[in-house]
Design a protein around this nucleic acid. Structure first.
Length: 374
RNA sequence: GGGUCGGUGGCAGAGCGGUCAAAUGCCCAUGACUGUAAAUCAUGUGCCUCACGGCUACGAAGGUUCGAAUCCUUCCCGGCCCA
């Protein structure tokens, strides 16, 4: 399996790579310098969140999202499809989805907004990102087959509109081909293979730089949808970027990589870090030794990493370094007992250090699988 | 010295005759988190028992009552007010 090279307006990155979610223009609790220090190459921001706050006027004045958040590497913007729909599915009062687009209320002030496929693309151009994502209809996998099928058709229609708007914006903004941002379609279809197939084929007809796996990749019980992920990855042309949106746990990333998925984003390292869970490579990790697990990583997932909850009382007087092997001085020089203390008194420094640790773990994980699982 | 209000679980603080092992919040313990409106959320938290159930508890000691954290008496401790 060849590792793809992705050229963007803000640098070249080699897949596979992991992008932390900087949804609102930041990786929570971290500065962009710290994110880079953890080995992160690219970030994901969210169209919708940035559109609401601080709003496009500010971002335009700042001359784009890169300058605004002081991140010079590649940035991918998620379209906001997932957010609008999870908002509405959680609470139907929060909005309405029609063929035209989605009308929703801002959770922060209740104000009403509409986002259409065209508008989502316009916003992403205004943000000035390197990779953008089509606005999609993203129902939960538990919905009926009929509902999922409807969402697939709508996602396809919307993808066409996104592509048209994308081409229109390129022309209007006089962006040369070499400078154009990449555009990704999103494949829906829940756990129904034939729907995934239909969606993929239709999106490929429209033509995108990459294709994302939409909706969740695990079922209600958190069980990984192996078949669906593999099936879908195989349908996407190999010269296109395969984006596993929202993936995931370390073992899920490894599995997806083996299936052919190239790029990943997830809240896990940062959110769980904020909640006190730290990820570490295991001493005899097959990944650290550069050895691939022949049966697929699923068979030896438990062998390659471990987590701790730093809030557990057993760390109150554990004076070992947080991570003696880290490249980040703070993680080598601070003890677990100190980090435990920071969490106990709920100081943001704890969330920061834990996020840093987990991002470094994810970066190293990506390097290991890049080198070890070819 | 006189008056007055109060003393409840690790802390704060409800309860003011039975449905009270005692609200609620915090602390504490454990868990969850997968295209982030989650620095969040869930569960547990007197003791014994797998459980049914039992035991000990609302400052202390007595008392009233079928029954008291809740009423009465005395004592101890604290706040405030008056001398």
């Amino acid at each position: 399996m060849k590792n793809k090279i992705i050229k963007t307006n803000h640098g070249i990155v080699t897949a596979p790579f992991f992008m932390p979610d900087a949804t609102r223009g930041l990786v929570k609790f971290l500065s962009t310098e710290e994110v880079a220090e953890a080995g992160i190459k690219a970030l994901v921001v969210n169209t919708l969140h940035l559109y609401l706050e601080p709003g496009l006027a500010i971002i335009k004045k700042a001359k784009g999202i890169h300058k605004f958040m002081n991140w010079d590497g590649p940035i991918l913007s998620d379209s906001g499809g997932y957010q609008v729909f999870s908002l509405i599915h959680k609470n139907p009062k929060m909005g309405k989805i029609t063929d035209r687009g989605a009308i929703f209320r801002s959770p922060s002030d209740g104000s009403e907004h509409e986002i259409t496929p065209e508008k989502a693309i316009q916003i992403q151009f205004d943000l000035g990102v390197d990779m953008m994502v089509c606005f999609d209809d993203c129902p939960p996998n538990e919905y009926s087959r009929e509902d999922i099928a409807k969402a697939v058709e709508r996602t396809i229609r919307w993808a066409k509109r996104c592509k048209i708007e994308y081409l229109r914006q390129l022309k209007k903004r006089k962006i040369p081909d070499a400078k154009r941002p990449l555009l990704f379609g999103v494949i829906q279809g829940g756990a129904e293979l034939d729907l995934r197939e239909r969606c993929t084929k239709e999106l490929v007809k429209i033509g995108f730089d990459g294709y994302g796996f939409g909706a969740r990749h695990v079922d209600k019980e958190g069980k990984f949808l192996d078949k669906v992920l593999k099936f879908t990855a195989d349908l996407i042309p190999d010269d296109k970027i395969k984006f596993a949106l929202g993936v995931g746990l370390p073992e899920d990333i490894v599995r997806c990589y083996q299936m052919g998925w190239d790029i990943f984003d997830c809240v896990i390292p940062t959110r769980e870090g904020r909640h006190g869970k730290l990820f570490f490579h295991k001493k005899n990790s097959p990944l650290l030794r550069g050895v691939a697990c022949r049966r697929g990583m699923t068979g030896c997932v438990k062998d390659f990493y471990e987590t701790i909850n730093i809030g557990n009382s057993r760390f109150a007087s554990d004076f070992s370094p947080i991570n003696s092997k880290s490249k980040i001085p703070e993680l080598r020089d601070h003890t677990k007992a100190y980090l435990h203390h920071l969490f106990k008194i709920n100081d943001p420094l704890g969330a920061r250090i834990a996020s840093l640790n987990n991002l470094e773990f994810y970066s190293e994980l990506m390097d290991k699988i890049k080198n070890g699982l070819k």
